[in-house]
Amino acid sequence: MNPIAIDVKNLVKVYHKRGQPPVRALDGISFAVPRGQIFGLLGPNGAGKTTTLKILTTLLPATSGSAHILGFDVERQPFEVRKNICVVLQENAADLYLSLRDNLRTYGRFHGLDARETETRANHVTELFDLGEYRNQRLIDLSGGLKRRLQVAKVFMVDKQVVFLDEATTGMDAINKRTTIQAIKQEARKGRTIVLTTHILAEAEELCDSLVIVDRGRIAASGSVEDVKLIGFKFVHVTMMFRRLNPRTIAALRQFTPVSMETRNTSIEMTLKKESDVLKVLRAAKRDKNFVNFEVGGATLEDVFVELVRMPREESR
């Protein structure tokens, strides 16, 4: 058995629109995903993630390059590819005038389950995603979050080897997000390969075995989460607590040009490029009479991501 679930080589996609210059959405990206991994496809808006996903799920032909799913060429063997994948697209996708249960039933039938099996699995995912009380309601009457939950629940009805989840947890509340993340982990343990695109980097950090960061159609970084975080090994993440925040302190801290800086109710989190800046930052913070304490840690995936997509193209190669 081929140990590689997804193999992408020099994938290029150029969009041509009448009267407009061509747009190179993908500029020769390559990556491979071993079977049974949770793989993250990360990048800012317009980076090329959804285009990559559309090519891999046979929705869109590539301009050049190749992509194989479980050894099947997405261009030449799209039907074989579709037999082995299931997909949650970024847009909500549902039959709004059918009940939640009927949406699950039709999904099961489309993926070759018989009526009995469909019922059993529909019951299972309804329970798993806590959708029981809505089972007979039409989707048009449900909230956006519930529709999204159903959409994700659907893919857990079928045993496809490769699962694509495009921004799967968007619009979900914290509890459902947690349920979804647990379900994804559980499925990966069963040997399914899961490709995840997300804006929520903490989610990617928690879930992914390996990832690529795509920026402007090219790969800015790739490897395991720990490997990618090493790109920012010199970064230092600093958290400072205050009794109350002082705009003057915030302005003073900004002078250190951090990779990222976030203020919450009474705390400031910043990522610094140079370790030597830590003491200077501490001194600046302590000048504030409301200063309480100070914590220092390593860079997060988010810090690396922000730094990579902020770089000019030449530098990020």
Binding site: T58, F79, R82, C86, V87, L89, F110, H111
Partner: peptide, 14 residues
């Protein structure tokens, strides 16, 4: 409009 059309195209059918 319901977004499901594109999902159909990823289902195992020609």
């Amino acid at each position: 409009d319901n977004g499901i059309f594109y999902e159909f195209l990823t289902y195992p059918m020609t």
